[in-house]
Simulated assay, not measured.
Amino acid sequence: MIDTQDFNTRLERLQTALRERMRLRGRTLEAQLRRAGRRLPKRQRRAGAIVLGAQDWMAHPKLARVLDISQVNTAFADLHAHLDGIDPKEDRKTAILRLLGGMVLNLALLVVLLVLLMRWQGAM
């Protein structure tokens, strides 16, 4: 059987890690995982579902005794291992570079289209 206090502490640590590493807001773990969506790999989404299910079962004393401790521990370990590998600064830098790259590509396409339009009109 999992100690309720220990489980709640682990939940809080997981929520803090999601908030700090992935910048996910939300009052509950369920809200944070919903916001994460596809930013989490499929395996971590499944682990999050296991943790959420365990959270529901921990609210009921008889169900808490039947809960598979090893599966819950593995789910917590999976989520923390993934979150520890995320660098928020690197993610921000990557997002900015992707945005700038997209802008440059769009501007280059616009220039090409303008040149083609000018040639077609006979201005060049």
Rank of each mutant, 00 (worst) to 15 (best):
M1R: 08
M1S: 13
M1K: 07
T4F: 15
D6S: 04
F7N: 05
T9I: 15
E12R: 15
R13V: 06
L14D: 05
L14P: 14
R21V: 11
M22P: 13
L24V: 07
R25Q: 11
L29A: 08
L29I: 08
A31Q: 04
R38L: 10
R39Q: 12
Q44I: 11
R45Q: 14
I50Y: 03
G53M: 04
G53Y: 09
D56K: 01
M58Y: 06
H60E: 12
K62A: 06
R65N: 01
I69W: 13
V72G: 04
N73H: 09
T74S: 05
T74M: 11
A77C: 03
D78H: 07
L79W: 09
L83D: 08
L83G: 06
D84C: 00
D84P: 00
D84K: 00
D84A: 01
G85Y: 00
K89Y: 13
E90L: 15
D91G: 12
K93Y: 13
K93I: 14
T94C: 02
A95F: 03
I96K: 02
R98P: 01
L99K: 01
L99C: 04
L100S: 07
G101I: 13
M103C: 02
V104Q: 11
N106G: 14
N106F: 14
L109N: 10
L110E: 08
V111E: 08
L114K: 10
L117D: 08
L117Q: 13
M118Q: 04
R119T: 05
W120D: 09
Q121N: 06
G122E: 11
